[in-house]
Design a protein around this nucleic acid. Sequence first.
DNA 1: TGAATTTACGCAAACGTTTGCGGCTGCAAC
DNA 2: GTTGCAGCCGCAAACGTTTGCGTAAATTCA
Lengths: 325, 325
Amino acid sequence: MAKRANVSISTVSRTITQTGGISAATQAHVRQIMEEMGYKPNRLARRLRARGGKRHLIGLIIPNIQNPFFADLARGAEDAAYANDFAVMLCNYDEDPVKERFYLDVMQAESVDGIILPPAHEDDPDVLRVKRGGIPVICVDRRLNDRTCDTVEVDNEAGGYQATALLLAKGHRRIGLISGPADSSTGRGRLEGFRRAHAEAGVPVDEALIRFGNFKQETGRAIAEELLSLSRPPTALFAGNNLMLMGAIETIFRRGLQIPAQVALVGYDDLPLAAVFNPPLTVVQQPAYEVGQKAAELLFRRLNQPDADPVTVCLKPNLIIRGSV
Amino acid sequence: MAKRANVSISTVSRTITQTGGISAATQAHVRQIMEEMGYKPNRLARRLRARGGKRHLIGLIIPNIQNPFFADLARGAEDAAYANDFAVMLCNYDEDPVKERFYLDVMQAESVDGIILPPAHEDDPDVLRVKRGGIPVICVDRRLNDRTCDTVEVDNEAGGYQATALLLAKGHRRIGLISGPADSSTGRGRLEGFRRAHAEAGVPVDEALIRFGNFKQETGRAIAEELLSLSRPPTALFAGNNLMLMGAIETIFRRGLQIPAQVALVGYDDLPLAAVFNPPLTVVQQPAYEVGQKAAELLFRRLNQPDADPVTVCLKPNLIIRGSV
DNA sequence: TGAATTTACGCAAACGTTTGCGGCTGCAAC
DNA sequence: GTTGCAGCCGCAAACGTTTGCGTAAATTCA
């Protein structure tokens, strides 16, 4: 106990939490004693007692930290949290609803101030339940149909458009799309951009060239295989995320095709090594770090103003033209 | 309160913690009520009161989750924790002692059951302080000079040896080593393997070809630059980790050199895209996932037997021969 | 059958905070 | 010389568990 300072527990608490009602002199004194004996308040007791916004912990539930996109996002969120003296509890749910529910329960039982996550589904009942339980939820990357959530996403339509427009400008007329799931906002958005680019260029889209995957490497490999086996194969491939891009590259190399001479390639999400790949990979880069950072800031804002109107910020993707188209 | 079951709080607690002293009948009854009303014990109150090993939370402090090696390690630890109903609190300290201290304090204030981390330094005073504070510490990847810590590492000497031996077997006689810091057990171990391979092959090592970096991409680029600018440049490069490998590749491409014709290349740690790189990258792969998994298991063991002798398990690296040598 | 032992459970004190309320100063106003 | 009103600060009740101890009931034993 820092009652070595000859003050009550309350006084210590009030100088820590800056609740006011303590003279500057005693505050300084208490702080000095705290410093001297290296006192650190117990985070558990604090969270147990404190109400929303003062618990200094946020939950981050993501599909998989092994995906560089989410690793960047996590770093952005953590750095923003660290700057505000918050800690982050991070969990991977592997797109598994059971795991997602488990971790949502953990977050609730840990009394986090708020939760940041890309919802598994557009109307994820578990997330809505937690939200109704009074815990602020910030959606990242994907959105929720319930529009009362603060959201930070990246403009998928623009990303899909830019990539496709580049390919069309290079003269490609048959572009294979390895899309994400049709029931995800990210997959759909990128597809819409794909269509708009075609429409604006006056190029009809061959529906046979659009295939829906699940954002995993294996389906990228398989879909590229299907596409390139067509009697009239595409001259370019557009992969809907980084893992499916890697799968597509697998297939392309297995078939001994040259990039971009025999098949052009553009991916979604940057990847380590992409810049030094041979040829360097052209990709739509998403500002993942900023997404995480912005999400944390949005959360802090909501903690300070619980009744503010929900806001959704939309960051812009960045087409990095390298050598694969 | 689950006193809807007509039992005392103690009884509920004892059936949850399996402390014994409760008849099978009442246990079943309590469980049923818990199920019915979806009761979840409060993790904070539990940690606040419970003593070591029953708090169901472990801390994981790593340099940077954006490094695929640590991402894999983190997943291994988390999956093992999840299987035992533990949650993980993950923090990135960026090799920054200040951040490391901050997060160690957080872990202590969160009453974690134990901490898993690659210590920043071989005799990291902050880690030792926490350990003496009574919190079990498991070292991963790197070791601590204080040998009372359970440790799980990968045989760096063997990895360095295998990579170098492969290069020597291919006829290379001048191999440039982009080493990690000399004061890290990982950097030193790999260097020792490098030397032993030379000794066994009867090839003298040119000390000018050994350079110490800091495991970051930029130094990989710079050191490769230095090495390749030598009047008698090496015919092969061995990069001491994945980031420095990427830096080396940058330099190689900038100089327009062919891999492996003009300069052979082997890296430490696998990388996404490495297998489909052109040419596919030969690397010493470390079982990062297993390291994390094993570390969590070691921690659980220690929680059950706090006085067991410290053990260090040493996993074997795996030389993946692809096309870059 | 009475005593000793075991089994099964409840009581209540912690754990270390936050916070509503109330009390004590000192000072200005009437 | 009361009263009023700040500004500061302490008291004590929570928060929801774990756990040592105590005590009935059930069982065993002589």
